[in-house]
């Protein structure tokens, strides 16, 4: 059984249709890259999969681990093992990173019937993962993403992923805004998570990330549809010819939007 099976998925925001029939199957152990010009619907797909209600699914189906994913609340999706690394991680002043992540981990553990962790055990779990992500422990006591640099935010997303150990990880442009060192750290964190039980969808605008996280499949999303699929060499092809080579263009990106 496939881990994730998306069939003819349509979604809109307001009156505007953004996803216009997506088909995608991800098996455990696979890494799928989704590339495409700005505005093609990559983030929309990622957010729809994690249950953001701003996007209304108007057709098609999504089956995750044999269940109708679209029936589940965002928190239940997370508890069932879906993780979205946000393109724009949200700043939450007043909520400490530590409290937040402990609450999240314990909610997931409870759902899976595993004993919840106390503060000490939690610290032991996170300490090692912070090292992998080259994150300063002080970040745990800071409010969630508040005052973090762009790179710190992205690393914090992958750190959360490492702690929550999802079965399906969706990374939305985790590479954007990272210098090469930070990119390698982030990619290292992601690669360490690759496993035969885990599927990954890596959304990116550029090929750069994909030479660090080598995908099994590459899909090109344009105007709400997957217009081309192939192996990892497709990314290199795109790099050489640009989206223009496929007759595709970037939409100017709106500021501050998801």
């Amino acid at each position: 059984m496939a881990l994730l099976e998306i069939k003819d998925l349509h979604a809109k925001v307001g009156e505007r249709e953004i996803l216009k029939g997506i088909d995608l199957t991800v098996n455990a152990g696979e890494v799928h890259a989704i590339m495409g010009p700005n505005g093609s619907g990559k983030s929309t797909l990622a957010q729809v999969l994690s249950g953001r209600d701003m996007y209304v699914v108007t057709g098609g189906s999504v089956t995750y681990d044999g269940k109708d994913l679209l029936e589940l609340s965002p928190e239940d999706r997370a508890r069932e093992g879906i993780f979205l690394a946000f393109q724009y991680p949200v700043e939450i002043p007043g909520v400490s990173n530590m409290y937040f992540l402990k609450a999240a981990l314990n909610a997931i553990r409870k759902h899976r019937g595993i004993e919840e962790l106390d503060a000490m055990d939690f610290l032991n779990v996170v300490r090692e993962k912070m090292q992998i992500m080259k994150m300063d422990q002080a970040l745990l006591n800071r409010p969630v993403n508040t005052g973090f640099s762009g790179g710190e935010k992205k690393r914090n997303e992958i750190f959360q992923m490492a702690v929550l150990e999802p079965r399906l990880a969706i990374l939305d442009e985790t590479d954007s805004g990272l210098d090469i060192d930070a990119l390698r750290t982030v990619a290292g964190g992601v690669n360490a998570m690759r496993s035969p039980d885990r599927g990954m969808i890596v959304v990116t605008h550029y090929q750069r990330l994909l030479s660090e996280i080598v995908p099994d499949f590459v899909h090109v999303l344009a105007d709400g549809r997957i217009v081309k699929s192939g192996g990892k060499e497709l990314a290199l092809e795109l790099e050489a010819e640009g989206y223009e080579g496929l007759g595709l263009h970037d939409e100017p990106e709106a500021v501050g939007r998801i």
């Binding site: 249950g51 928190e75 997370a78 937040f100």
Partner: peptide, 10 residues
């Protein structure tokens, strides 16, 4: 949404 997407109940 961010909090819920990490498994925290609404």
């Amino acid at each position: 949404f961010y909090l819920r997407s990490r498994g925290i109940a609404k």
